[in-house]
Amino acid sequence: MQLLVLLSVLAATQAAIVPLVDTSGHFHTSAPADAVPQGKNVTINGVLTYVSLPKNKKFDPTAAVLLLTDVFGLPSPDNLLLADQWAEAGFATYAPDYLNGNALAMGGDITAWAVNHTEVQTTPPLLAVIGALKSHGITKLAATGYCFGGLYTTRLVQNNTVRVGTMAHPSSLNVPTDFELVKAQSHAAIEINNAELDTGFTPAVALQTDAVLGNGHYAPGYFRRQFDGVAHGFAVRANASDPVQVAAKQGAFDTSLAWIKAHLE
């Protein structure tokens, strides 16, 4: 935990933070009425965690995906269904409540909420779950983070806590400093899905990231894919009546899945 905090402080002194996007800037849709989460809530090392395991298929018990949710956390059915989608793809999937039982309500004040959800508060439960998973034989761990979770995927990649990381429309990052730290000390492959209309991790910020990690500058592997016509939150929620949103959400998942499959071994 101390190293994670140190990295955060170092980054904060050198670069601007990609802001959290206000709730009004997220896609807001209701999960389909017939979509019922298939996993279950369990307590892992004292932390509530949504666990979704592959159904009716064999899976590698030494591999797992750690899903790091957006600010709406486990109360959001969309996050649970996303974890189920990872399980359907063949991975034991764990989504820890690193928000400490205090996810942001739709329409809530994200600025006030963020005061009580700094890395000092959110990192310990995350590391508690990771420690428990590794103690139970999970040796190949991937992290996939969405919005707020993108920061924590980056931290876990920086510290080589995971073998591979993916993220979509990340927030709270210091760019380019956070990715310079990745380049300097990580050997975990990293992939980013960004949105053309995002007001946080904008296309301009994405290009700054490319300048650090792209064009072969990062040996472990880097890939970024931009989805046009969509905004912040697109990889978690999509309006079922909008084919652009539906395609972007599925495209982000497919891209992340392919990246993790290629780099988790």
Rank of each mutant, 00 (worst) to 15 (best):
Val65Ser: 02
Phe72His: 13
Tyr222Gln: 09
Ala89Phe: 11
Asn100Ala: 13
Asp97Tyr: 05
Asp228Arg: 12
Lys183Thr: 06
Gly73Trp: 04
Phe234Met: 11
Arg225Phe: 04
Leu133Gly: 04
Met167Ala: 00
Ala195Phe: 10
Ala195Pro: 13
Pro125Asn: 04
Leu207Trp: 00
Leu173Trp: 11
Val21Ser: 12
Ala89Val: 01
Pro96Trp: 09
Asp210Asn: 13
Asp84Cys: 11
Ile44Arg: 05
Gly73Gln: 09
Ala16His: 11
Leu133Met: 08
Gly46Asn: 09
Val246Pro: 02
Gln226Thr: 06
Ala204Phe: 10
Ala95Tyr: 02
Ala262Ser: 04
Ala112Ile: 05
Ala105Met: 14
Thr177Asn: 11
Ala128Lys: 08
Tyr98Val: 09
Ser30Pro: 02
Gly39Ala: 01
Pro37His: 08
Val182Ile: 14
Tyr50His: 07
Ser135Lys: 12
Val71Thr: 12
Thr166Cys: 09
Val47Thr: 02
Val115His: 10
Asn56Ile: 04
Leu20Ala: 12
Thr122Arg: 14
Ala238Tyr: 04
Ala114Glu: 10
Asn193Gly: 11
Gly251Gln: 03
Leu80Phe: 08
Gln185Asp: 01
Lys183Asp: 01
Asp70Pro: 08
Thr139Ile: 00
Lys140Asp: 00
Ala195Asn: 10
Val205Ala: 04
Ala258Phe: 05
Phe234Lys: 13
Leu99Thr: 07
Asp22Gly: 13
Glu196His: 12
Lys140Gly: 01
Pro77Ser: 12
Lys249Met: 01
Asp242Gln: 08
Ala231Tyr: 11
Asn159Arg: 15
Gly216Ser: 06
Thr139Glu: 07
Met1Leu: 15
Asp78Glu: 13
Ile110Leu: 08
Ser135Glu: 11
Leu4Pro: 03
Ala231Glu: 13
Ile44Val: 09
Tyr50Met: 07
Asp97Trp: 08
Met1Ser: 14
His28Ala: 05
Asn116Thr: 15
Gln208Pro: 05
Ile130Arg: 05
Leu257Ser: 03
Pro176Met: 07
Asp210Trp: 09
His26Asn: 15
Val36Phe: 10
Leu141Cys: 05
Asn215Val: 01
Asp242Pro: 06
Leu99Val: 10
Val5Gln: 15
Leu126Asp: 11
Leu81Trp: 07
Gln245His: 01
Pro243Val: 00
Val164Thr: 04
Ala15Cys: 14
Thr177Gln: 14
Pro54Gln: 03
Leu81Lys: 09
Ile190Asp: 03
Gln85Ala: 14
Val36Tyr: 11
Leu141Asn: 03
Leu68Val: 00
Asn41Thr: 15
Lys57Gly: 09
Lys249Gln: 10
Gln14Phe: 06
Arg225Lys: 15
Asp34Glu: 15
Asp22Cys: 06
Ala248Thr: 02
Asn160Arg: 01
Gly137Cys: 01
Val205Thr: 04
Asn160Lys: 04
Val36Leu: 12
His169Glu: 10
Tyr146Gln: 07
Pro243Lys: 09
Ala206Val: 05
Val246Asp: 02
His217Tyr: 00
Ser171Ile: 04
Asp34Arg: 02
Glu119Thr: 12
Thr23Met: 04
Gln14Ala: 13
Leu207Ala: 14
Glu191Trp: 00
Ala184Gln: 15
Asp198Phe: 03
Tyr94Gly: 08
Pro77Phe: 09
Val175Met: 07
Gln250Pro: 02
Ala114Val: 02
Leu7Arg: 14
Ala12Tyr: 08
Pro125Asp: 01
